[in-house]
Amino acid sequence: MSDLSNKITSLAIDYLGPATGRFLQRQSSSHMNGLVFETIERQHLPEFARWVHISAGLLIGNQKGKELADKIMRL
């Protein structure tokens, strides 16, 4: 697991709980041409954060989804 994917997981776990790993894996593989989340790099962050905003927003509300996406973008 890369340092960046670790940091994203640490951030997201406060919002999404124990299924965070599954969620993040799903976003990268489904929306970013099968990208393995553990290999994510900085250049992927804008697109990844956009999908986190959309998908997490459906689960935890748009405001919190945006908050999480903004935090990921600042990494």
């Binding site: 776990i13 406060d14 919002y15 999404l16 709980g17 124990p18 299924a19 965070t20 599954r22 969620f23 799903r26 689960l59 935890i60």
Partner: peptide, 14 residues
């Protein structure tokens, strides 16, 4: 509790 609910939703959707 909210985090647990969110995780449950993720897992159930999966």
């Amino acid at each position: 509790f909210g985090r647990m609910v969110t995780s449950l939703k993720i897992m159930m959707a999966e």
